[in-house]
Nucleic acid binder design. Structure first.
Length: 882
RNA sequence: GGACGCUUAGCUCAGUUGGUUAGAGCAUCUGCCUUACAAGCAGAGGGUCGCAGGUUCGAGUCCUGCAGCGUCCACCA
């Protein structure tokens, strides 16, 4: 036999970089490379990873999904564009970069903001370059000539213009409002960047005395069992943050709370300050919590802030941006850490006999997602987007787009998350007190404010020092990319490349990003950002635990790739993953798919050996049952995979392919192929070789989106299969359709029957003499004898004492066994099983199924019953002959 | 407090509009170095599909309730 020119296994380590180069040289990842420039467009503005580190396994997963879709649509003939990018990632990058400078012992105080910015820019560009190489290494078929950075001047212009437009529309404003303040980062951060950590704390009960003297009311029981009389001489509140009482400007009760109605409108004295404040009624108070009376500190609590606005309360800021108590907190407290102030407040209240009870309580404290520091709600001057402006409500616009059904959301259940988030949206704080990001295009001179791309003419204008929240710019990514690349005219609103065809996003940033993109696009473009959005789950470790550095259960993509190759990694991430659901990632899964890569490699090797360097003559019509059978199956699977891909069911598509290639193509077809290629007539040989070329070409193409490297390598290696410079631009189609639908189930049934008898008796390697039904065709007989390792004889040639009869292939086959009795137990088992199934079917048909089910289903079950009954009869007869 | 997801073989998970006696990989057992592949081949064992009801001729699949796990949102004064 001819030796294969293919190596023993796929040498992915050395070949992957070569294949990447091959694709680059072929230049097929630009939409302009599509043969039909009027073809529909498949475009993704890919989520840009933060340009301050490297790719992790989650990025790899997202990119794999996007690349599979991109390669699929490209092969289907779409003008395909995957836009790669990197995000400047405001606060996160600034934190990372400042840490890096500290590690390098750079004195940041000696650098100007401009110098810091420039250095950080260079740092990001450097990281971006590194990350780009990683992206290429996993086979990402992006258009690298169109890569963008979120601080690219082409995009900046659009981002600033949007802000200016909003200003002119009255949709952005500057105001003093309560925000989440990060003391560590010295900036405001957004709601979604705040996490809550459970911490042990206390709930302190203390009293505010009525200014006009006691007014006794109901009795109130405290947790320690003691009872106090309401209003005698004051009201008792419960709080976890006593230090904020220095900024109290009201007490509040629920308007329907009978216990306190008589006190509404009266005044109390704030302990330690002697300030007099009113008792107000507000529905936001929960009468069942604590005592039902709440101290209201508008400057340091979100709910209190809202209550304060409703009731026009004063806002007294007692904690500063530095986390220390302000002068407004009083001489006893000014300059103290808030925690120290808390203790001092408690001490002083105790001394004055105002502290009535203390209980231990677990409560949640706000923590910054980036800095992991405590977040202090406080009032600060910031820029906001008005999301619900009467007559021009962005929220309403976005909600209408979601509800219109114009966006196909995969999985669909995530739609409610969009709606929920939009409905709860408060005005969005978009200014950050950072030096890294888009500096606000706002100029001040005295009390004048000017918003525009450039400072107005004249002296004395100074630019605002704040930058935009990262999400303000990335929220525009869907259209800023297309417009920045001149694939969209912002004034016209839509183009072939916008709205984009699909967005692929991890479900964890749905609220951060997807919602904001929707909001921004609804405003600026008055349309949807993407026609489809697909949410991936998160990658977890093999036991479903979150991957984290502290647990040490993270997975480095590059380690896995070095060990198993990219194709195996891609399959392991896709197969078995349901949209929106997290996936457990196990190395042994990758190992399993690396075996699949090897399997495909060896299938190619076999075909290549049989071709022996020749190219078979084309065959217009297949005459071999083997060829027609496989092509029938191939057409079916191709249609199914296509349907799955169109529906974003990548896991099902890849699973079907895996099953088909291993279970049908290799295990059956290639075995038949060998028999015909080795023993057929010259015409048959040519036909089966031609068919193998077509069918294997189809398989390589179908598998290419999932496993681009090994398929491309084999495509290049098999000259008979190759039709285009690269497989990446092959057509998504079935090569060599069947000339008639055929099955080989008779031959397969007989082979399986023979194998199972052999296995039961441990006779595997031996050739067995068998007799098959006379109805079996010549080709199938050949396959049975070749693949089933059987010598076909007349049934009369087998001695009665050695003849084992077995139902197979719509008839009975006879096998020659030296020790027939050894098979008795197996026959008995089969009989029990056949009788069981017959009984089940009979009962089913005799019952309501026989009356109510669809006729074709009933008929189908009748046929099955006939078959199993006949089987039982045959088995019984066989057993009786022993 | 609200919403959503998950619960299927020892492990990790599929199961596409309800329809064969529920599948895969890994693991286990048996036999095979059969010239593409031992990274393989053939065969086998293993599940009352979380629990309880309901709809239906028929439920892993639809409905209701419950439990456990997980996630998100709101609240936590």
């Amino acid at each position: 036999m001819t030796e294969s020119s293919l190596t023993k296994n796929f040498d992915f380590k050395t070949r992957e970089p070569e294949i990447i180069k091959l694709w680059e040289d072929a230049d097929v990842f630009r939409p302009e490379a599509c043969e039909d420039q009027k073809a529909p467009v498949f475009s993704i503005a890919m989520p840009p990873p933060n340009a301050n580190g490297e790719l992790h396994i989650g990025h790899t997963y997202g990119y794999t999904v996007q690349d599979i879709l991109g390669r699929y649509y490209r092969m289907k003939g779409y003008r395909t564009l995957l836009i790669p990018g990197k995000d400047h990632a405001g606060i996160q990058t600034q934190v990372v970069f400042e840490k890096k400078l500290r590690a390098e012992k750079v004195d940041t105080t000696k650098l100007t903001t401009k110098e810091l910015y420039d250095r950080c820019y260079d740092f990001c560009i450097d990281r971006a370059q590194y990350m780009r190489a990683q992206e290429k290494s996993i086979g990402l078929s992006a258009d690298w000539s169109r890569e963008l950075f979120t601080l690219d001047p082409r995009l900046n212009k659009i981002v600033f213009e949007t802000f200016i437009k909003m200003w002119n529309d009255g949709l952005v404003y500057r105001g003093s409002r309560i925000v989440n303040w990060s003391v560590f980062s010295q900036t405001a951060i957004s709601d979604v960047e705040v996490e809550y950590a459970e911490k042990d704390g206390h709930l302190w009960y203390f009293r505010y005395d009525l200014v006009d003297g006691p007014l006794p009311g109901d009795s109130l029981k405290l947790p320690n069992g003691s009872e106090v009389t309401i209003g005698s001489p004051g009201l008792v509140i419960a709080t976890t943050r006593p230090e904020t009482m220095l900024g109290d400007t009201a007490l509040a009760v629920h308007p329907d709370d009978k216990r306190y109605q008589r006190y509404i409108g009266k005044e109390v004295t704030v302990p330690l300050t002697n300030r007099k404040i009113k008792i107000i009624a507000d529905k936001r108070i929960d009468p069942t919590f604590g005592t039902g009376v709440v101290k209201v500190t508008p400057a340091h609590d979100f709910t209190d802030y809202d209550i304060g606005v409703t009731h026009s309360l004063e806002q007294i800021q007692v904690i500063g941006k530095d986390g220390l108590m302000t002068a407004a907190a009083g001489v006893d407290f000014v300059g103290q850490q808030s925690v120290a102030a808390r203790e001092l407040v408690v001490t002083k209240l105790t001394e004055q006999g105002l502290l009535l009870d203390t209980i231990a309580m677990r409560h949640k404290v706000p923590i910054g997602e980036r800095g992991k520091d405590v977040i202090e709600p406080l009032i600060s001057e910031q820029w906001f987007v008005a999301v619900d402006k009467p007559g021009n409500s962005l929220r309403q616009k976005a909600l209408e787009l979601v509800r219109s059904g114009k966006i196909a959301i995969h999985p669909e259940r995530f739609k409610v998350l969009f709606e929920q988030w939009l409905e709860n949206l408060r005005d969005w704080n978009i200014s950050r007190q950072l030096w890294w990001g888009h500096r606000l295009p706002v100029w001040y001179k005295g009390s004048e404010t000017y918003v525009g791309l450039e400072a107005p003419k004249g002296e004395g204008w100074t630019q605002d020092t704040d930058v935009f929240d990262t999400w303000f710019s990335s929220g525009q990514w869907a259209y800023s990319t297309a417009a920045g690349l001149e694939l969209l005219d912002l004034e016209r609103g839509t183009s072939d490349f916008f709205p984009t065809h699909t967005m692929v996003m991890g479900r964890d940033i749905l609220l951060f990003w997807a919602c904001r993109m929707l909001l921004m696009t609804a405003y600026r473009m008055n349309t949807i950002p993407w026609k489809n959005i697909y949410f991936t789950g998160l990658i977890r470790d093999e036991h479903g635990q979150k991957m984290s550095k502290s647990k040490g259960n993270g997975v480095e993509p590059r380690d896995i790739i070095a060990k198993y190759g990219v194709d195996a990694l891609r399959m392991a991430m896709i197969l078995g993953a349901t949209p929106g659901n997290d996936i457990a990632f196990a190395e042994r899964k990758v190992e399993g798919y690396s075996k699949f890569v090897n399997k495909l490699w060896n299938a190619a090797k076999l075909i290549e050996m049989k071709l022996a360097g020749t190219t078979p003559k084309p065959v217009s019509q297949y005459t071999l049952a083997t060829a027609n059978w496989l092509s029938t199956e191939l057409t079916r699977i191709h249609a199914h995979v296509t349907k799955c891909m169109d529906n974003y069911e990548l896991s099902i598509a890849s699973g079907e392919l895996y099953e088909f290639i291993w279970g049908t193509y290799c295990d059956w077809y290639l075995e038949f192929f060998k028999v015909i290629a080795d023993t057929g007539t010259p015409e048959e040989k040519n036909e089966i070789l031609a068919h193998a070329v077509d069918s294997f070409g189809t398989i390589l193409a179908m598998l290419h989106p999932f496993m681009p490297f090994v398929t491309e390598e084999l495509y290049q290696a098999l000259s008979a299969v190759k039709r285009k410079p690269v497989l990446a631009s092959e057509k998504w189609e079935v090569r060599g359709a069947a000339s008639s639908e055929q099955t080989l189930e008779d031959a397969q049934g007989i082979i399986t029957a023979v194998r199972s008898v052999k296995a039961a008796l441990n006779l595997s390697a031996k050739t067995m003499r068998i007799a098959v039904p006379s109805s079996l065709g010549a080709e199938q007989r050949k396959l049975v004898s070749g693949v089933g390792r059987a010598e076909l004889v007349e049934s009369s040639a087998i001695e009665q004492s050695k003849a084992l009869r077995k139902s197979a292939a719509d008839g009975v086959i006879v096998l020659e066994l030296e020790d027939k009795a050894a098979y008795r137990a197996k026959l008995e088992k089969d009989l029990v099983s056949a009788n069981g199934l017959s009984a089940t079917l009979r009962a089913k048909l005799a019952g309501d199924f026989g009356r109510a089910a669809k006729p074709e289903l009933i008929e189908q079950e009748r046929v099955r019953l006939n078959f199993t009954e006949q089987q039982a009869i045959d088995l019984k007869a066989e057993l009786d002959s022993f």
